[in-house]
Simulated assay, not measured.
Amino acid sequence: MNYTLHQLQIFLKITQLKSITKASEALFLSQPAVSIQLKKFQDQFSIPLTEVVGRQLYVTDFGQEIAEAAEKILNEVNAINYKTLSFKGQVAGRLKISVVSTGKYVMPYFLSDFTNKNSGVDLIMDVTNKQSVVKSLENNEVDFSLVSVIPEQMNLERVELMANKLYLVGGTKDKFDRKVSKKKIFETYPMLYREDGSATRSAMESFIASHNISTPKKMELTSNEALKQAVIAGLGYSIMPLIGIKNELKNGDLKIIPFKGLPITTTWNLVWQKSKKLSPTALAYLDFINSEKERIIEENFDWYNQY
């Protein structure tokens, strides 16, 4: 056996993505380069690691076992590198964070200075839906999660970052009948919702129910970006987080419609399990957040108070 760490890395990425093309994109390599390294790696084993059925690549049972071993080896190599940097007095290690989809407009600002200052930190940020974020916390797969609604069933620690404000929003090119009362907007025009399980949808549904508003026309979209474009195009109205529509408001593509009881205000929270033993890297990040969050908010979200 004479395989390299580079080959292990490539093979592991192929098994994770089930695609040579996607692996090459993730590793910033050409597809031929990845294919060549996979062949060289396969040539060292008499048992197939992968197989192609139709156009789909499948990992064999043997290949899956090799992939698991490769992941362990690569993790150990990374640990050696982190320890070397730590002995030099640098913060080094992996920082894994899961973020609800709208949180992508928030979390990067609370990470950039920390990662720029600590080059030995490898950041893994998964932007996904609320259910997946909660699952990653339950399975102890991440150091921290960013949520606007705290999962009640879990025993969590938290740091409050900033307010999350949700407004009734419409496109500026719509043909809204000015004679229709604002409350009738919900009954007259389609209301656009996020998918089930979304914190934004839950907040919207709670608001509508608490105000006894009827919404006979409904549409559902599975991402904040899709929802935003649908509102801009005039498909309907929605209650949306302010944090995600800054540019659209500035450019005049969207407008906030004043409505009694709005905005809905929640809080963006960085959370982690109370029972979790945080790594030195995670503890260093927590110290950074506690000492720098006010500065970060002031420097990056001063526009927020205009609404």
Rank of each mutant, 00 (worst) to 15 (best):
M191T: 11
K165C: 07
F186L: 04
K165M: 11
I185S: 06
M154D: 03
I185R: 05
F207Q: 03
S214A: 09
T172N: 10
I185A: 09
E160C: 05
S206E: 12
Y167M: 12
E160Y: 04
L161M: 05
F207E: 06
E157G: 02
A209K: 12
I208T: 01
F186N: 10
I213H: 01
S198N: 10
S181F: 05
S202D: 07
M162A: 02
Q153H: 13
F176D: 08
N155D: 14
D174R: 13
R194N: 07
Y167L: 07
F176Q: 10
L166R: 11
T172V: 10
D177E: 14
P190E: 01
L192F: 00
Q153K: 08
P190A: 00
N212W: 00
T188E: 08
L168C: 03
V169W: 11
K165E: 15
K183R: 15
G171E: 08
E157W: 05
M154H: 00
M162E: 03
H211G: 00
L166I: 07
E205F: 03
A209Y: 12
M204C: 09
D177P: 04
V159L: 14
E160P: 08
K179N: 15
E157S: 15
S214R: 09
Y167F: 15
L168G: 00
S181Q: 14
K175T: 08
K183P: 01
K179H: 11
K184Q: 13
R201V: 09
G171T: 12
Q153S: 07
V169Q: 07
I185L: 13
E205L: 10
R194P: 04
L161P: 02
L192A: 01
L166A: 13
